Amino acid sequence: MYFTKKHGKEGRSIESGKLELLKQVAAGIAAQFGSSCEVVVHDLSRHADHTIVAIENGHVTGRKVGDGASYVVIEQLATNDPQPRDHLCYLTKTPDGKILKSSTIYIRNSKGKVSGILAINYDISRLLMVDDALHDLVSTGDQPQPEPERIVNVNDLLEELIQQSVSLVGKPAALMNKEDKVKAIRFLNENGAFLITKSGDKIAKYFGISKYTLYSYIDTKQQEGK
């Protein structure tokens, strides 16, 4: 993993007392808002494949304790941003088409390090159906709505990042030259793809190169940065 040295997890763990408090808060929020409200606690000291340490109403996204990170968690693990801003009241979308109203709250430990994430995902799909029915009666003009972000599991996230890298280059992998592949792989590295278990094998196979070549492209970028 090429993020180990650059984005070490020392000092990131959630203290046990705070973790128990977060679990209690998660259960309280879920009970208050009902079965459509999923509340997730991510521990950033864990591997990206297993960051979920508590979840209420996991049926909303089909996740459970021990499952891996969503994109927002991967992003924090990759950048190790010391002062991330909470992302509140934005839309997300599950693979089966549910629209969720989501909030992401960053949790810091006693050392001030971002050690966890409390995520709230409220399924508003049925409410949107009511809203659509009333829209023609109350609307005075159409306003563009933002495209919901997708909530995906780790394996689907890697596939999505690979497709984004291909779109960035603008040609399929089979037609890419060395420069194209370097560009695509650097995009994947900068967006946390190599935090995912066995991602190197899958990415190398996808672009038709060896793992040695794959990591040499990353090393070249790191040397240029120095």
Rank of each mutant, 00 (worst) to 15 (best):
E15G: 14
N121C: 01
R46S: 07
K23E: 12
I55F: 06
V114Q: 06
H50N: 10
P148G: 05
R85E: 13
K5T: 12
V138A: 04
T220W: 13
T51R: 08
E147M: 06
D131M: 03
F207R: 11
K18M: 09
A78H: 05
V73I: 10
Y90D: 03
D43M: 10
Y212T: 11
G170I: 00
L91F: 13
S36R: 15
K64T: 02
K113L: 04
V65R: 15
D142G: 01
Y71R: 12
E160H: 14
E20N: 14
N177C: 03
M1A: 11
D156N: 11
E159H: 07
G112D: 03
L161R: 10
K6R: 12
N57Q: 03
P146G: 02
D43N: 14
Y122M: 05
K5E: 15
H50I: 00
K5D: 13
Y215P: 03
N177S: 01
K226T: 04
S16M: 12
G200S: 11
I162L: 08
L22Q: 08
V53M: 05
S167D: 06
I203C: 11
K178T: 06
E20K: 15
T213A: 11
I74Q: 08
E159C: 02
K9W: 14
G28P: 04
G17W: 09
L168I: 01
S110D: 08
Q223A: 07
A204C: 09
E56R: 09
D86P: 10
Y71K: 10
S115N: 03
P82N: 09
N177H: 11
I74L: 13
I99S: 09
T92C: 14
M176G: 00
K113S: 04
D156K: 13
E38Q: 15
Q83N: 15
Y90S: 00
A30P: 12
Y212R: 12
L175V: 00
G11N: 12
G68D: 10
H42P: 04
E147W: 02
K9G: 01
K202Q: 13
I124M: 02
N155M: 03
D131C: 00
Q76R: 09
E159T: 06
A48M: 12
E160R: 12
Y71P: 00
S35V: 10
Q145W: 07
D131Q: 08
H7S: 10
V72G: 07
K6T: 07
M129V: 05
E179T: 01
V41D: 03
A27C: 05
Y90C: 01
Q222D: 13
G68Q: 07
N80C: 05
P148R: 03
E10M: 09
G34I: 05
K64F: 01
A26P: 11
G8I: 08
E224N: 10
R63S: 06
S199R: 06
N191S: 00
Y212C: 05
S125K: 03
D132R: 06
F33M: 08
T213Q: 14
E20Y: 11
D123S: 02
D132E: 11
I29K: 08
